[in-house]
Nucleic acid binder design. Sequence first.
DNA 1: TAAAATTCATTTGCATACATACAATTTTTC
DNA 2: GAAAAATTGTATGTATGCAAATGAATTTTA
Lengths: 144, 144
Amino acid sequence: MTMPRDDENYVLDDQVGFLLRLAYQRHMAIFMGRISGGLTPTQFSTLYRLREAKGPISQNALGRLVGMDAATTKGVVARLIARGLIRMEKDEEDRRRHILSTTEEGRRLLDEVMPQVRGITEATLAPLSPIERDTLVQLLKRLN
Amino acid sequence: MTMPRDDENYVLDDQVGFLLRLAYQRHMAIFMGRISGGLTPTQFSTLYRLREAKGPISQNALGRLVGMDAATTKGVVARLIARGLIRMEKDEEDRRRHILSTTEEGRRLLDEVMPQVRGITEATLAPLSPIERDTLVQLLKRLN
DNA sequence: TAAAATTCATTTGCATACATACAATTTTTC
DNA sequence: GAAAAATTGTATGTATGCAAATGAATTTTA
């Protein structure tokens, strides 16, 4: 007599985690194929949020708005600075902080890229009907 | 007269790509917090698929079953071998191939981990009702 | 005010994930 | 049967992501 394995009813292809990974991979492929300027999804989100913030904002605070931890944020910010899309200054009020802002070049790229980004969302959701798209977005928001 | 920016109606928090990234991050955090043996989601999927395959299977073929490209698969397989969870032999039929199989240790860990993995899916979907969970899974499957 | 806790940023190490290029080997095609 | 095409695995470089440790500066608390 051997114990039956605990695999009954377990179908990997039906697991949210597995599906989320594949869905995000597909979205990334669509994103990188349609965006100009070589922005990654994370870099776009970071740049967008920074312009959206309008006022001065620290590196870590910006990272939180995008859902990145401090270590990840550091790398993303460094690459955006290296491309001349954002700028960093020291905060004299709080000398731990690095204040970030978009550059003219960064805002120009953002303007150029917005229509593409809309198309990317469209393409990602293409397999679904309008109602289904809305349902998926609402459910994903509830998940976070 | 300046051109109005193309930001009307664009809300980053409503974009599938952004939400998919956050949802998968949350899932990974839940996964790593509940799994024993330090398996990552990808490593678990790979190990699970390999046992599921039963017959001999090449490295690249296994990677495709899990949704990884060849380069990623190489790293995942190397780490699973290093932990003694899977084994690699040369295929004499096709000398390009590396045939993979699970070890006793790998199957033992898989058995140990299955109940935890069920709990992880539960925890990830916790904010949703049973019907909503099913809807989300179905929509994600359609997206791939 | 001094000590403790918190916050901000950095660094290191590890683990996906993709693009690209490459060598070795099979398979297909002519 | 030889050339062309495809497949398998490897290597390198880039980009998220997290954990954990560190140092510097600020805020809270005793």
